[in-house]
Amino acid sequence: MCVKCETFLDGLFEHGLLIDTGIDGLYGRGGTFERVVTGLESLISRYGDEDQAEVVRFPPGMNRKFFEKSGYLKSFPQLAGTIHSFDGNERAHGALLAKLEGGEDWTADQRATDIVLAPAACYPLYPAVAKRGPLPKPGLLFDLQSYCFRREPSKDPARMQMFRMREYVRIGTPEQVTAFRAVWLERGREFVNDLALPFDVDVANDPFFGRAGRIMASSQRDQGLKFELLVPIESVEKPTACLSFNYHQDHFGTTWGINTQSGDVAHTACVGFGLERLTLALFKHHGFDTAQWPAPVRQALWP
């Protein structure tokens, strides 16, 4: 393989799969990398298509008011990204340019806009669903994909700051929603077997912030609300979550006032696919040259 490459990330740069931008966790993607992402998306669709999910695509920015109401800042203030912009007059513009010229910090005068970066593909969905009124009797199922942002700079290519998440989101009664998650826990295993990747499925918790977050994390684990499908990428001891299966109970239903037809608060669950992580796992385990990947894997990605 690559003799000069010190790390997996170096190898990815060297082979033109990722493009260095000077910022850890923020990369360009080469054509071959994207071809794998596209293949993965098609394979995911082949598993999910029979459920006839409603396809929705949001941009990677979301309404700041919705974001505030979502409770994200209670749990993950350290990961959030907000969009700021210049809204001054010509004098302020002059001051900005002077600071820029002098190498001073010019960003303090930027103003927060009404847009924040989406932390997960499903965050913009719930308020849109709430506007529709009570759920139909069979509940709802959505197919989402979006670039997401999480502020966690790292040299580990599997921990990007901007990455794509494909999601199926189920909204309905507790029974409908837990059945959905059970089905995807099975499908997820089959899906990763198609890719010939080693994996484990384990109970997990989100990286809740601070001491209060300890309780949230312990609560999530004790109740088995989150499972992850883990594949070793940068380390065998700490494998990377490539799929996650989350049961939110009535958290989003209560927050957004989403009700079932019988008037009960709706429950929600989602299965999320980390598209970059899965792609990286494939390059890690099958090598940098996709032509050399096992035939069944190539067949699964590009039938």
Binding site: G71, K74, R211, A212, R214, I215, M216, S218, S219, Q220, D222, Q223
Partner: peptide, 29 residues
């Protein structure tokens, strides 16, 4: 879970104590 966190903070303030890390879990409450 969210209310547990609020309760934990309220207990700490009221009694002027700090729950050690090992007690920051669901079972403690």
């Amino acid at each position: 879970s969210f209310a547990t966190v609020q309760l934990m903070l309220a207990i700490e303030e009221h009694f002027d104590i700090e729950f050690p890390e090992r007690m920051l879990n669901r079972r403690s409450f």
